[in-house]
Design a protein around this nucleic acid. Structure first.
Lengths: 116, 116
DNA sequence: TCAGTATTTAACCATATGGTTATTTAACCA
DNA sequence: TGGTTAAATAACCATATGGTTAAATACTGA
């Protein structure tokens, strides 16, 4: 299989799955209720849930004939941590970013090659 | 096409593309240099770059026969904002999370159905 | 104009993804 | 036991993804 961060981002790349996670943020619930907002067959939802489960984003219990799903946020934290490395790029103004890159290059003692 | 957040997460789901972004965080550079760390043909890299470009994660210039790539962080911010909605789930201890869910349910004035 | 370098595009292939309907499994209830 | 509900699995299909090699394009520089 692939690495954790890849499978997390991959799971999050589908709007249906993100909507499912949003619903689970309100508390755990059954597959049928998770499926209800979508114009999609149960097997389709079932497979989305399998993707989320493999990515560690949900866990499933057993309660009579229901298989309640529950949000597991740890992989989201890892994804957020990855993104956080780039925070300075969207927080800095363009001018300040240029400054930052110049500082970086100064530290690298002109190895040439990369422009700017 | 798909929505912005979907194409961003989708682009980030590949380790090669994340490595390319990591390199671009050091400053803009050519396709050939971006390709050098990988055991992969140039066309493969070229297509990864196209995915990143379509997701708005990079922009490309023209300088003689080079097409320098540059990181564009705005979509990363949107992805981070999406994830941030779930921060409380990984920051809260399990006990505190349970408390939070109970509070939520209290507000909902027992509509029944969802357990916990 | 011609040769070389950088990059993209074309054509192809294998596997993954996301959906469907039909069937099966698991548990409840009477 | 048999009928009902919840959910997963099987079998199938179309399209997307990620790689390849070979060819085309865009620019440089003599």
């Amino acid at each position: 299989m692939q690495d954790q961060v890849s499978s997390t981002f991959s799971a999050l790349a589908d709007p249906t799955r993100r909507a499912i996670l949003a619903r689970l943020a309100l508390g755990e619930t059954s597959v049928t209720e998770l499926a209800s907002p979508f114009e999609m067959s149960m097997p389709a939802i079932s497979r989305h849930l399998k993707v989320l489960e493999k990515a560690g984003l949900i866990s499933r219990g057993r309660e009579a004939q229901w298989r309640p799903c529950k949000l597991q946020a740890e992989p989201l934290k890892q994804a957020a941590d990855w993104l956080d490395e780039y925070r300075r790029f969207w927080e800095a103004s363009f001018d300040r970013l240029d400054e930052y890159l110049k500082t970086l290059q100064a530290k690298e003692k002109k190895r040439g090659r990369t422009k700017n």
